[in-house]
Amino acid sequence: EVTIKANLIFANGSTQTAEFKGTFEKATSEAYAYADTLKKDNGEYTVDVADKGYTLNAKFAG
């Protein structure tokens, strides 16, 4: 089991951190699915991958 950390950075400057656990593939998929649920209210996002894929920095356009 691994933990994927998602740093969510919103256009207004606020941030949120979420963690997803499971296999690498499952946890990564859940992190992206969570970011997708936030698109409606926060706009499209881009992701910078860090820490060999164990940290995802998602920046929302607003």
Rank of each mutant, 00 (worst) to 15 (best):
N42F: 15
L56V: 08
A58R: 02
Y34F: 12
A31L: 08
F20Y: 06
E30P: 01
A50V: 13
D36L: 06
G13Q: 05
N57W: 10
E30H: 07
T3F: 06
L56H: 02
F10A: 01
V2L: 06
Y32G: 00
Q16T: 11
K40D: 10
A58N: 03
N57P: 01
V49Q: 06
Y45E: 01
V49L: 10
A61N: 12
G62N: 08
K21S: 10
G13W: 04
K52A: 14
G62Y: 08
A50L: 14
A61S: 13
Y32Q: 03
A58C: 15
L38K: 08
A35C: 15
D36M: 06
K59W: 14
T55S: 05
V47R: 01
T55Y: 04
Y34S: 01
A27H: 02
L38G: 04
G62I: 06
T28F: 09
K40S: 10
G53P: 02
T23H: 06
N57G: 03
A58F: 15
A11Q: 09
K52D: 15
N7Y: 13
T15E: 07
G53E: 04
N7K: 08
A50H: 10
T23K: 07
K52G: 15
A58Y: 15
L8I: 13
D36T: 05
K40T: 10
A6E: 03
F10R: 03
E25L: 10
L8N: 00
L8Q: 01
G62Q: 08
E19R: 09
G53S: 04
S29V: 10
Y32P: 00
Y54F: 14
K40G: 11
S29M: 14
T28M: 13
K26C: 12
A18R: 15
A33C: 08
T3L: 09
K40E: 11
S29E: 14
E30C: 13
A50E: 12
T46G: 04
Y32C: 07
V2D: 03
K39H: 04
T15A: 09
F24W: 10
K39G: 06
I4R: 02
E25A: 12
N7H: 12
T3C: 12
E30I: 06
F24C: 07
T15Q: 10
A11M: 09
A31H: 01
S29T: 10
A61V: 13
F60A: 01
F10T: 03
Y45W: 05
I9H: 10
F24Y: 10
T28P: 01
F24E: 03
I4N: 00
E44Y: 09
F10H: 01
D48E: 15
K39R: 12
N57D: 05
E25C: 13
G22N: 05
A61Y: 13
A35R: 00
A35N: 03
L38Q: 07
Y54E: 04
I4G: 01
S14H: 13
F10W: 05
G22S: 04
Q16R: 13
N57V: 12
D41P: 05
D41K: 11
I9C: 11
S14Y: 13
A27K: 00
F10G: 00
T15I: 14
T28L: 14
S14L: 13
T55K: 04
Y45T: 00
T3I: 13
E44C: 14
G53I: 03
E1P: 10
V49I: 13
Y32L: 14
A58E: 02
E1M: 14
L38P: 00
Y54W: 07
K40Q: 11
Y34H: 06
V47E: 01
D48C: 15
A18Q: 12
A58L: 15
G13N: 06
K39M: 11
G53T: 02
T37P: 00
E30S: 09
T3Q: 05
N7S: 06
G13K: 06
L56M: 07
K59Q: 11
K52C: 15
A58I: 15
K52L: 12
A18K: 15
T28C: 12
F20T: 01
A11S: 10
F20I: 00
D48R: 10
A31V: 08
V47A: 06
T15L: 11
A27L: 01
V49T: 09
A27C: 05
E44Q: 09
A33N: 08
K39Y: 06
S29Q: 14
L56R: 02
T46P: 02
K40W: 11
F60N: 03
V49G: 04
E44R: 07
L56A: 02
F60Y: 12
E1N: 11
T17L: 09
F24S: 04
F60V: 01
E25D: 11
G53N: 04
A33G: 06
I9M: 11
E25N: 09
K40N: 10
K26Y: 10
G43W: 04
T46S: 10
T23S: 11
L38V: 04
A6D: 02
T23C: 07
L56T: 01
T17I: 12
Y45L: 04
K21H: 14
Q16W: 13
E1I: 15
A33S: 09
A50R: 12
T17A: 08
K52V: 06
E44T: 10
T17F: 11
T37C: 14
F24D: 01
L8Y: 15
E30G: 05
D51C: 07
E1Y: 14
A33D: 07
G13F: 05
G43F: 02
T17N: 07
T15C: 15
A6T: 09
A27M: 02
N57R: 05
E44G: 08
A31S: 03
A6N: 02
A31R: 01
D41F: 12
A50T: 13
K21Q: 09
A33W: 07
A35W: 14
N12T: 07
Q16I: 15
V47M: 15
K40L: 12
G43C: 05
K52M: 14
N42D: 04
V2R: 04
Y34Q: 00
K26E: 12
K5M: 10
D51T: 02
K21N: 08
A33M: 09
T17R: 10
Y32M: 09
A31Q: 00
K40Y: 10
A18W: 13
G22H: 02
G13L: 05
D36P: 00
A50K: 11
F20A: 00
Y34A: 03
Q16G: 08
T46M: 09
A35D: 00
L8V: 08
I9K: 07
G62A: 08
N12V: 04
G13M: 05
A35S: 04
T46L: 08
T3N: 05
V49Y: 09
G62V: 07
L8S: 02
G22Y: 04
V47P: 03
V49K: 07
G53Y: 03
Y45C: 04
K52Q: 14
E25F: 09
G43A: 03
